[in-house]
Nucleic acid binder design. Structure first.
Lengths: 215, 215
DNA sequence: TGTACATCAGTGAACGCGCGTTCACTGATGTAC
DNA sequence: TGTACATCAGTGAACGCGCGTTCACTGATGTAC
């Protein structure tokens, strides 16, 4: 029994071509970085003329914004799926690492060098907040030793940002540290700053995650 | 008593114009990011024609490489000066933070999104190793609780890279964690990932540094 | 001290390129009666 | 079922732009005798 068809053949074709454009875009980004993304080059690769792409995206900026959105979306979905399967903070860290290694340039598109003056649209910020929420839940689930540093006293403004999440200050703090530490280890690794240094970045990553989880 | 003059007036002029070109380049990078760096635009700002710059740099790539070299150099010098004045690991962290905040795009030129396929020349890698050495010394000077995790057992390959530095494994580990944690906190802050989250990134940074120093 | 020559900074024209984007259009696909 | 019309994907030409880079040159500065 086929599902109810609410999409016309033309609509299906449209979404398919849109997806194909994005795939070529990702390929180009993986190869030469996001700054080298060119609509004309994508069109050529797809065997069509440049202006044709304007049927699918208002322009280069909209395409890039869409790619950023998709990247955040896939990360948020990965987090939620893992959390739903009972993953703890360490498990989420490894979801992030796997996601990053799968396409380093995608990782940098989201977490890398910012373009001065660019501000992500609200709905993207929203998706980013979803990922934060998953991490915060995982931190709240972790046993805490109850000790509290200077920073924890300062953090209530952040609790408000997090939708008034009832986690203890130490958990809010730990959630932020999750991002900084895991991103620090990952981005230096992906940028090649550890190549030739004689150790395995994966083990350093694991050590950071262990420390973060309270060991 | 004037010092011995080994530089002719022409040479002095050359180095001065070179420096002026670099200054305009940094200004442009700070404004629009490194990918927007353009020789012609620099020349226009300086009131000269584009080709004139080829008297001073073989091309765009050489200019950028030189900027990266200068950035590393200034960071390494800052570290050494601080260490020479008795700064501990926390002091060095704040040197790095100050250096980063002074020109975020310079920070990202060095530690940000890598250009696929680009490899820094050996002399730049060398300067990077100098900065690493300063951090490692600071870590070796810190009291260690002697406990050792899984990662520490793996780290001897890295000791070799570090010129056979006699620091305990825990210090080597701490030096690496210094980079990942401090870079993680700094780069997320500079990229604006914390704006509007209701806490002060400087305090989070301090908390990370305290934790790193053994509290 | 003055003259002849070499050095070298900077110019302006030119080349070829690829970019994003617009526009008027052709031709195929889908829709309404 | 067939015909008239609307929708819309894709084309090719064109615009204007700025880029890195080369080349032959002018004119000023420095050097040697």
């Amino acid at each position: 029994m086929p599902e109810a068809r609410t999409e016309t053949p033309r609509e299906r074709y449209r979404t398919q071509v849109r997806a194909e454009i994005k795939e070529h875009a990702w390929e180009q980004i993986a190869t030469a970085g996001a700054s080298a993304l060119s609509l004309n080059a994508i069109a050529k690769r797809m065997g069509m003329s440049g202006p044709a792409l304007y049927r699918y995206f208002a322009g280069r900026d909209e395409l890039i914004t869409e790619l950023v959105r998709d990247a955040y979306r896939s990360l948020a979905d990965g987090f939620k799926a893992a959390a739903g399967s009972g993953a703890d903070l360490a498990g989420l860290a490894h979801v992030l690492r796997t996601w990053a290694l799968a396409d380093p340039q995608r990782y940098f598109l989201v977490f890398g060098t910012p373009v001065p003056g660019y501000h992500a649209p609200d709905d993207i910020t929203q998706i980013a907040a979803e990922t934060m929420a998953v991490i915060l839940d995982a931190c709240a689930a972790l046993p805490s030793d109850g000790t509290s540093g200077d920073f924890d006293a300062h953090i209530d403004g952040h609790r408000q940002w997090a939708g008034g999440h009832p986690a203890p200050a130490a958990a809010l703090h730990r959630a932020l540290a999750f991002w900084t530490r895991v991103h620090g280890a990952l981005s230096l690794e992906l940028a090649g700053h550890f190549t030739g240094m004689g150790f395995d970045p994966a083990l350093l990553f694991d050590a950071e995650v262990d420390d973060l989880s309270g060991r």
